[in-house]
Design a binder for these strands. Sequence first.
RNA 1: UCCCCAAUAGCUCAGUCGGUAGAGCAGGUGGCUGUUAACCACCUUGUCCCUGGUUCGAGUCCGGGUUGGGGAGCCA
Length: 461
Amino acid sequence: MATRTRIRSALAGEGLGGDVTVKGWVRTSRVGKEVAFLAVNDGSSLASLQVVAEPALPNYPEVCAISTGAAVAVRGRLAESPAAGQRYELRAAEIEILGPADEGYPLQKKRHTFEYLRTIAHLRPRSNTFGAVFRVRSSLAQAVHRFFAERGFLCVHTPIITTNDCEGAGELFRVTTLDLARPKLVDGEVDFSDDFFGEAAGLTVSGQLEGELFAQAFSDIYTFGPTFRAENSNTPRHAAEFWMIEPEMAFADLRDDARLAEEFLRHLCRHVLDHCQEDLAFFNDHIDRGLVARIEGVAGSTFAMMEYGEAITRLQRAEVAFEYPVEWGLDLQTEHERYLTEQVVGGPVFVVNYPREIKAFYMRQNDDGKTVAAMDLLVPKVGEIIGGSQREERHDLLMARMEETGIDPASLWWYLDTRRWGSTPHAGFGLGFERLIMYLTGMENIRDVIPFPRTPRHAEF
RNA sequence: UCCCCAAUAGCUCAGUCGGUAGAGCAGGUGGCUGUUAACCACCUUGUCCCUGGUUCGAGUCCGGGUUGGGGAGCCA
């Protein structure tokens, strides 16, 4: 058959009145003696194209037997539809059944639970919801790159295999070619000097440290790639493999960092509103009633900023019984974060300058000696969505902080080197890509915004 | 890892007081129709998650387990 027209284009009337060929998968069929209708979808849009088949077709009996899930190629005339429900339809002159589907096809025309669809992750992208999720995911990924490209940020591919184990010991996935049945032991411990890299290696938990190195050469950089956590987290918000977006800016402080985060999130909200309207309307109707209004709210708002100390005071004054204690020096729990963004501010809010004891070693110490230049962006419904900080650029203070937190400076000699030669104030943040997708689609389980999710006990497909 | 909930037809679920299994959808057959996740009639489909116990009798009650989900912690 002739050149394929994407169904998205056909639905927009492209080729109206002329000869058009589409190829896709049958979503539903409605069959009669005088006429049959096939809804055909090729993934280019949420909506399917109605194909009209008449008995004059040489293979009309076979066409009538086509069931949900079959792959077809249809050539015909694209015409205005006489019936309500669609503007255009394809009057078939020829229907080729490329790949039939029998009654065992697991995706039915009716609603399925997400739990069930996870067990058929190889087929669920053919469903309405997952089609929409993965179109939005793709669009957002491109929007992320475009946002940074437009601002002159360098895209750096930080390593996936790493020998840093200083960011949090037990959560690293081990990467090894050693014989697991008989590893060489020295004093009862596995001897990794025989391993592929000559030392213990694992999958990265963050590209930040390497990102900082590149920021000290290219000024503004970002990394956007997969990260891995071996934590036994069983929640709808955690996965063992997920994607992170981590920009890093030299010659920048916490204010600059917050400004970038704010622009970034607003830009992505604007992006889905402008470019994913059909899918967003679907989510708004079927998944999360207030979705579009909430995204419009964030896209149009200026984000508030609040000191950690003030946040504590506000929480202590709140006439709400929190499950976890509120006290200066303790970290904010999800319930606290949501109270701040939903009740106190009523919109996105940065909480800044956290106690140094509850934050990572690389965050810049403030002059008060008690806090570090950290920021969390809290948004309604989810709580923290972005975490960032100004980094400690002063060599002596960074060394002292590493010793305090039990990190061997020798293992991060290259990181410390950037503070020896041409050190600059710099800052960056991290955003979990899946959490962003969840926020912008209303999907409530991270397993349903990753094509093939990896969670404890699950790495199928 | 801790706490809570759930598991019944291919899918979504109901199943009363403990009395031997039911609906819708899917599938099959027939009908009807420019249909809209079409409609109408008839038909098919069960390791009631596994295991042990209580009982004359367990889908139902109790213990243990498995799997899934939710909440929490960790965090992105």
